[in-house]
Simulated assay, not measured.
Amino acid sequence: MTKKMGVVNDDELMVLDLTSAERDFLFHGLIEWGGPGRMTDALAIVIGFDDAEDFRSSKGTLADAIVEGRGLSPHNWRRALAAAEICFASDTLGVGLEWEDVGVTSDEETFEAMRSVQIKITMHGIG
């Protein structure tokens, strides 16, 4: 079942109306792990994955679904957003200072996209 608005349970899929900048932020925030960003078991667990291997095996599927505009469960929206936030912002855990160097948008554009995604997720009762 796919739902567009309202508070949902974690079994329902939700489609968020994302801009290309918001999709790019989430996409790159997932796929850049494994380059400059190194996912650890402890961090993966905090984000909501079983371990780093679970993250590595899930990130492509999540990234593809986001880019293609398919629905994700609230749990997966939260996991994707948390991974992207850390990848973008943290220089000790994620890409951080190298964000623009890996070919992603500017820090300013990314920050605006991140805030916008955070608001959309909160407004849909996912956060």
Rank of each mutant, 00 (worst) to 15 (best):
M1T: 09
K3S: 06
K4I: 13
K4T: 11
G6C: 08
V8I: 08
D11N: 15
D11H: 15
E12L: 10
E12S: 13
L13S: 07
D17E: 14
L18T: 05
L18E: 09
T19N: 10
T19I: 09
S20H: 15
S20A: 15
A21R: 08
A21C: 04
D24V: 13
F25W: 15
H28G: 14
G29M: 08
G29A: 08
L30I: 13
L30D: 07
W33Q: 04
G34Y: 12
G34A: 12
G35M: 15
G35F: 11
G35A: 14
G35E: 12
P36R: 12
P36C: 12
P36Q: 10
G37W: 04
R38W: 05
M39I: 10
M39C: 09
M39L: 09
T40L: 11
D41Q: 07
A42N: 12
A44H: 07
I45Y: 06
V46T: 12
G48D: 06
G48Q: 06
D51N: 14
A52E: 06
S58G: 08
S58Q: 08
K59L: 13
K59P: 02
T61A: 10
L62Y: 07
L62W: 03
D64A: 15
D64V: 08
I66D: 03
I66Y: 01
V67W: 12
V67M: 13
V67I: 11
E68Y: 04
G69L: 03
R70V: 04
G71F: 05
P74F: 01
P74V: 01
H75C: 03
H75S: 07
N76K: 04
N76M: 02
W77R: 02
R78I: 01
R78Y: 01
R79P: 01
A80Y: 02
A80I: 05
A80E: 02
L81C: 03
A82E: 03
A82G: 00
A82N: 06
A83K: 01
E85V: 12
E85T: 07
F88Q: 00
F88H: 04
A89K: 00
A89Q: 06
A89V: 00
S90Q: 02
D91Y: 00
L93H: 04
L93G: 03
L93I: 01
G96C: 03
E98T: 05
W99P: 05
E100H: 04
V102Y: 07
G103T: 03
T105D: 11
S106Q: 01
E108I: 12
T110M: 03
T110I: 06
E112R: 13
M114H: 03
M114S: 02
R115M: 13
V117T: 01
V117P: 04
V117S: 03
I119V: 15
K120C: 01
K120L: 08
I121Y: 06
T122I: 08
H124S: 14
H124M: 05
G125H: 11
I126C: 06
I126H: 06
G127D: 10
G127M: 10
G127P: 00
